[in-house]
Amino acid sequence: MHSDRNGSRADASRTAWLFSQGLGVICGQATVLLLAIGSVVLTATRDGASASIAMDDMRAFFAPVSAVHLWFYLLVGVLTLYALNTTLATYRNVVKKWRAGIRAPRFYAPAVIHLAFLVGLLAHGVGGVGGAELERLALGPSWKQLGDGREARVTGLEVDPNPDGSMKQLRARVETRDAGGSSAETVVFYNGPLSRGLGSELMLLVRPHSVPTLRLARGEDGCDVEVAGVCELGDVRAELLYLHPPLQPGQNAFAQLRVQNTGAGDAESFSLTPGRSKQLSDGSLLSAEGFGQRPAILLRHRRAPGNPLALLSSILLGLGLLMLWRRFSPRANTV
């Protein structure tokens, strides 16, 4: 029994360094050093070994593994040790305070900040491994797939100018609808992306754009549709697959369409030149009345799974610092 206690004490002293403040300080300064080296390496090799490293991506550091990025591999190890040290030290500290009967929230502020740090590291890991830059999307007046199960279209575009004529802000009214048919209207602008999942899916405004469109008419219904866009003409859904300009002067441009009657029947695909009509399977006439240009917006589609965790980390960090407010007050005895 006695020797067991001595043994466990010896074990505890062997692992005490993992809980220590000293290890935290060493890891912090090692992180500073490695990041400083990394900043120089990344700048020096931006056109070489670091050319593929963009945004917050971490996969590029391993594709391929390079001696140039040794600082990063060491950084992953140091931060792992830092996270372990922070977790163990914080847990022990919280348990100690709780058992001592300390209940005032401010005494747990450091633990909240440490938790923010751990969640922040996790956010970097998740975002760095799972983030992706997807295809850009020119969004105009007809429905387009967003790539996340939703469709969207621009229903209005306003440019707010500065007195010197430069652009102050661009606001695009965007209507979205999901597979279930429920729709919503939102405004997309610079610093106001179309966001989903607490920022894990973002469609960010790049710049205003214009798209060539085809004017379609079916009976009394009409619409302007752009390439890869869909418009609805009563119970017919028309998708513009392709729009070819005239190959030579004097020739006609033509459009390739896929038309589906939402009531029944198979989709039909056919080409149509402006000024011509096509009789659909239900007997109605679909006319291509001409080409045009419609205002649109160019969007960057970014998948950023680390953003919700970063948001949580920010909230915890802010909360922890606010809980520490007494320590920031200027009442301490100084010179």
Partner: peptide, 8 residues
């Protein structure tokens, strides 16, 4: 603005 809180 850019879709990421951190960039290299």
């Amino acid at each position: 603005a850019w879709g990421a809180y951190f960039m290299w």
